[in-house]
Design a binder for these strands. Structure first.
Lengths: 208, 208
DNA sequence: GCCCACAATGGCACTTGGTGTCAACGAGGA
DNA sequence: TCCTCGTTGACACCAAGTGCCATTGTGGGC
C-alpha cells in the first residue's frame, strides 16, 4: 500500500487501474480549474483539454458536469450509512447517528486543505448545492431504512425514522456549513457534538 | 379568461396584468404537458408552441425550464416565513414553527387535485427535486433569521436557530412526501401535528 | 507468434437549454 | 404628431449532453 489501495495484488485488473487513472486525472483537472475560475466559468472542453481526453470520454465517466464534483463526496453518503450499520444494536439512535455522521466529518478534518476547497465550491455554487442536496435525499432514505432495521417497527416507526434521519442530516449540513464558513478553523467533531446535544431529544423520542 | 383574481380594480396596471396572463399561460401549458409526458420529455419549444409565444419570451419569464414548475411553489416559502413572523412573540419555537409550516400545507389540502399533480412531479423528477431543495436552503436561512429575531441571542443561538429551522423543514418535506405518496388521502394537518410531536423537544431545547 | 473478441476511446453530427443582440411593434405622454 | 419605453420575436450563438460508428489497443486462446 503506497498511496491508494492499488498495487496489492500483482496484476489485479490493469484495465481497472487505467480507468481509475483517467477518472482521477479528470477530477483533478476539473477541481483545479473550478477552484480558480468558478464552476460556471469552466467548460467541459477546458477540462478535457487539461486532462488530455475527449469530451465524449468525460461523459462516459461522469453523468454531468456537476457529477465530477459531487461524486467526490459520494464516499460521505456510503460512509454514514456504513458507519450506522456498524454501531452496536442497543445504542440509542441519537448516539448511533452522531457517530455515523462523525465518520465523514473526521475525513474532512483530516485532508482539510483539499476537502475544504471542494466543500466550499459545492456550498457556494447553486447548481452544485442542488445536486448535493438531491443526492442526500437518497442518503436519507437509506438511513431511515437502517434505523427501521435497528429499532424494529412500532406505531409510527416510518414517520419517526424518516424524521430522525432527516434531522441528523440537517445537523450534518449545518456542521459542514459552519466548518466551511469558518475556513476550517472550527473543529467538526466539536460542532457535531454541540449540534447533536440539541437534536438528541427528537431522535430518541418515544412513540415508536 | 375571467378565471383568475384579476378584474378587481378598474385599471390598476394594465401592463402588469398582461404579463401575468402570459406567465399563467406558460405555466399552464408546461404543467399540462409535463403531467402527461414527464418533465424531461417536454421541450421548451413544445411549451412555447402550446402557449403561443416565442422561446425567447419563455426565458424572459422563467430562468430555466425547472423554474416554471418550482416557481409554482415559491409562495410556500414566503408563506412559511410570513406566517412565522406573524406568530405572537411569547410562543415557543415548536408551536410557532408548527403553525408556520401548517399554512402552505393547508393550501395543499385546499386545491388538492392541482397541487398534488405539481408536488408529485417535483418529488419524482430528480432535476426538479434538486431545484426545490436548493430553494429551501434560502427558506432555511430566512427562518433561522426570523427565529433569531424572535428569541434573542444566547450562547449558541446561531447554531440552534439553524438547526431548528432545518428540522422544521425536514418535517415539512416529510409531510409533503407522505401526502404525495398517499395520493392526497392523508390529512396534511394531522401529519404535521404528529411530526412536530416528535421534533418539538429539539426545537424548544434550552441552551440559548 | 497469430488472430479474435472486447473494452475504451475519439470524432462527429445532432438535440436541447439558455443568452446576447437587434429590429419591429404598440401603448401612452408631451 | 412624434417620441419614448417596455414587450416581443427572430436569429445567431454557446455549452451541455447523447447516439453512432470507426479506430485502437489489450488480453486471451490457439
Amino acid at each position: 500500500m503506497y498511496d491508494e489501495g492499488v498495487n496489492t495484488r500483482p496484476a489485479a485488473g490493469l484495465a481497472e487501474r487505467k480507468r481509475q487513472l483517467v477518472s482521477d486525472e479528470l477530477t483533478e483537472a476539473a477541481l483545479q480549474l473550478m477552484a480558480r475560475k468558478g464552476f460556471d466559468a469552466v467548460t467541459v472542453d477546458e477540462i478535457v483539454a487539461a486532462a488530455g481526453v475527449s469530451k465524449r470520454t468525460f461523459f462516459r465517466y461522469f453523468a454531468s458536469k456537476e457529477d465530477v464534483v459531487v461524486q467526490f463526496l459520494t464516499a460521505m453518503g456510503t460512509g454514514i450509512h456504513g458507519a450506522l450499520a456498524d454501531r452496536p444494536a442497543g445504542e440509542p439512535p441519537s448516539v448511533a447517528l452522531r457517530h455515523a455522521v462523525q465518520v465523514p466529518l473526521a475525513e474532512c478534518a483530516g485532508h482539510s486543505e483539499r476537502t475544504l476547497r471542494v466543500v466550499r465550491l459545492i456550498l457556494r455554487t447553486p447548481a452544485l448545492l442542488a445536486r448535493f442536496l438531491e443526492r442526500q435525499e437518497q442518503w436519507r432514505e437509506d438511513l431511515a431504512a437502517e434505523l427501521a432495521r435497528r429499532e424494529g417497527s412500532g406505531a409510527e416507526a416510518g414517520l419517526h425514522d424518516r424524521l430522525a434521519a432527516g434531522t441528523a442530516l440537517v445537523a450534518f449540513n449545518t456542521v459542514l456549513r459552519s466548518w466551511c464558513d469558518g475556513d476550517g478553523a472550527e473543529d467538526p467533531a466539536a460542532l457535531t457534538d454541540r449540534a447533536f446535544a440539541v437534536i438528541a431529544p427528537a431522535l430518541d423520542a418515544s412513540g415508536r
